[in-house]
């Protein structure tokens, strides 16, 4: 019996859904293969989150609590993760593919000389490792991958697996951890534009994303109103984040975030492959674009060919009626 370990990423005291998706998958694989599904929470107050993690089938939960984990910093996180690796010796160590994960995955792999596959959309166990699917070429193509070794790291794109509750009574192991400020190799000066209680894009059920077509004030207003009627998270194409019109954290795509909402409304977005790379897995895609040949229509379930300034006002009204 081997250990399948899942890292539970926490941001502002909340567990990232993508971690729980990975845990759900790990639990499923553990049950099918006679392994044990375990999890590790590393946070300022890790113990508070054990209960939620148990719901997804972890039979053992490691916790590391230290105020240093208030904000993401790679040096302490790497130290903590290495410690857990020593302790749990996981055959597979899974991560949700968050920015925090991306920051440490390479270094962690190099540190323990482990095989690593990042940003997979599917994975399963093999005799000597894992087999995984990764989107490549701006997500136009899927690649089949194999990784082998005693410890394998894998990070999983958000939305790849459904949450699947299978509550257990977990053994909780509080790991001893200390970190001295002097060990920090870098200094975190400040965090700007922290999202606070904004809806996290990669977890949103509904997203309204704006592109260059909606770059002026009026366009922005319409997009905001549409998002608020639908209680949706706002997203953006690179054209708008690059121009400083929308916050960089809202960018969706190859450079930005990967999302998989139930409903994605693309407003004034052409549908460049690098944008589509981040949203093609949305359940229902609606596109508003005045160019009937815009590539976004190739993937939209409902394409509205028209000027967004003319289409959005009645659309918003209509939605209000339905909602209200």
């Amino acid at each position: 019996m081997s250990t399948l370990l899942t890292h539970i990423a926490v941001s502002d005291g909340k567990i990232k859904r993508s971690s729980l998706e990975v845990l759900s998958r790990m639990t499923e694989l553990a049950e099918a293969n006679g392994h044990s599904s375990e999890a590790v929470i590393i946070d300022a107050n890790a113990s508070d989150l054990v209960e939620e993690v148990q719901k997804y089938g972890a039979s053992k939960v490691y916790t590391i609590s230290d105020p240093i984990f208030e904000n993401h910093q790679n040096t302490p996180l790497l130290k903590a993760l290495s410690k857990v690796m020593d302790e749990a010796d996981p055959f597979v160590f899974g991560f949700g593919s968050t920015e925090g994960t991306k920051d440490i995955l390479g270094a962690l792999a190099a540190n323990i000389d482990a095989a690593v596959l990042s940003d997979v959309s599917e994975f399963e166990l093999t005799d000597d490792g894992i087999k995984a699917t990764r989107p490549v070429m701006a997500a136009k193509i899927l690649s089949d991958n194999k990784a082998h070794g005693d410890n394998i790291l894998v990070s999983v794109r958000s939305g790849s697996y459904d949450l699947n509750e299978s509550p257990t009574e977990a053994e909780v192991v509080d790991l001893d951890f200390s970190f001295d400020e002097s060990e920090l190799k870098t200094t975190l000066r400040e965090i700007i534009g922290a999202s606070g209680d904004k809806i996290d894009l990669s977890e949103a059920e509904t997203i309204v994303a704006a592109g260059r077509g909606a770059k002026d004030d009026e366009g922005q207003e319409l997009v905001n109103e549409l998002a608020s009627v639908l209680n949706a998270a706002l997203g953006a194409s690179r054209a708008l984040t690059e121009a400083g019109i929308m916050d960089p954290s809202l960018q969706i795509g190859q450079t930005g975030k990967v999302v998989s909402p139930q409903l994605y409304i693309a407003v004034g977005i052409s549908g460049a492959i690098q944008h589509v790379a981040g949203m093609a897995n949305s359940k229902v895609i609606v596109a508003v674009n005045k160019d009937p040949d815009a590539p976004i229509f190739d993937i939209a379930d409902y394409g509205i060919v028209g000027d967004l300034y003319k289409v959005l006002p009645p659309f918003i009204e209509e939605l209000k009626k339905i909602k209200g």
Partner: peptide, 28 residues
């Protein structure tokens, strides 16, 4: 330690419906 063993075409999304015409009607 990792190898690409093959490539696959991504399953294409079924092409959806495209609407053109009067904004009010489209919206509704």
């Amino acid at each position: 330690k990792t190898k690409v063993t093959g490539y696959m075409e991504k399953p294409e999304r079924e092409p959806g419906q495209k609407f053109e015409g009067e904004p009010d009607e489209l919206a509704q």
